[in-house]
C-alpha cells in the first residue's frame, strides 16, 4: 500500500480574547495549502488544546493570542504536551506578541512566533519545512 500523508493542524485560540480574524485566515490558508485543519473555536484552556491535539493526532498546533496572555498560556501547552509524552508536534504561535517576549517563548518550546503582517506563505512554508510526519 502506498502512503498518502496529510499535514494535520490544530488552530487554537487559548485564553479569553475573541479576536479570531487572524486564526481563521491562517486556518483557511493552511487548508488552501492542502492541509487538514481543525479549528477549536474561542476560549480554549491549555488542557483542552492538548486533549484535542492528541485525539486528532495533529502534526502542528498553531495558537493565536491577542490579549497579552501568551506568556502564561503558550508555555503551559508545551508543559502539558511534555507531561503526556508528546514530542512530535510542532507548536507555533501568533498574535500581538512583543519582540521582547519571543526568546523566552522559544526557550519554552514554541518553535516560531509569527507577528502582525506575516505573509501567509511564510507560515505555510515554515510548517511544510519543519513538520515531522
Amino acid at each position: 500500500m502506498s502512503s498518502s500523508k496529510k499535514i494535520r493542524v490544530l488552530v487554537a485560540k487559548p485564553g479569553l480574547d475573541g479576536h479570531d480574524r487572524g486564526a481563521k485566515i491562517v486556518a483557511r490558508a493552511l487548508r488552501d495549502a492542502g492541509m487538514e485543519v481543525i479549528y477549536t473555536g474561542l476560549r480554549q484552556t491549555p488542557e483542552m488544546i492538548v486533549e484535542a491535539a492528541i485525539s486528532e493526532d495533529v502534526n502542528v498546533i498553531g495558537m493565536s493570542i491577542l490579549s497579552g496572555a501568551h506568556n502564561a498560556l503558550f508555555p503551559k501547552v508545551i508543559d502539558l504536551l511534555k507531561a503526556e509524552g508528546v514530542d512530535n508536534i510542532l507548536v507555533i504561535g501568533g498574535g500581538i506578541i512583543p519582540q521582547d517576549d519571543v526568546p523566552a517563548l522559544k526557550a519554552a518550546g514554541i518553535a516560531e512566533v509569527f507577528g502582525p503582517g506575516t505573509p501567509l506563505a511564510e507560515i505555510v512554508g515554515y510548517i511544510e519545512s519543519n513538520v515531522k510526519l
Binding site: 485564553g15 479569553l16 480574547d17 476560549r43 484552556t45 490579549s67 497579552g68 496572555a69 506568556n71 502564561a72 498560556l73
Partner: peptide
C-alpha cells in the same frame, strides 16, 4: 480561567 488575563 482568568489566569494570565487579569489587567491585560
Amino acid at each position: 480561567l482568568a489566569q494570565g488575563e487579569v489587567g491585560k
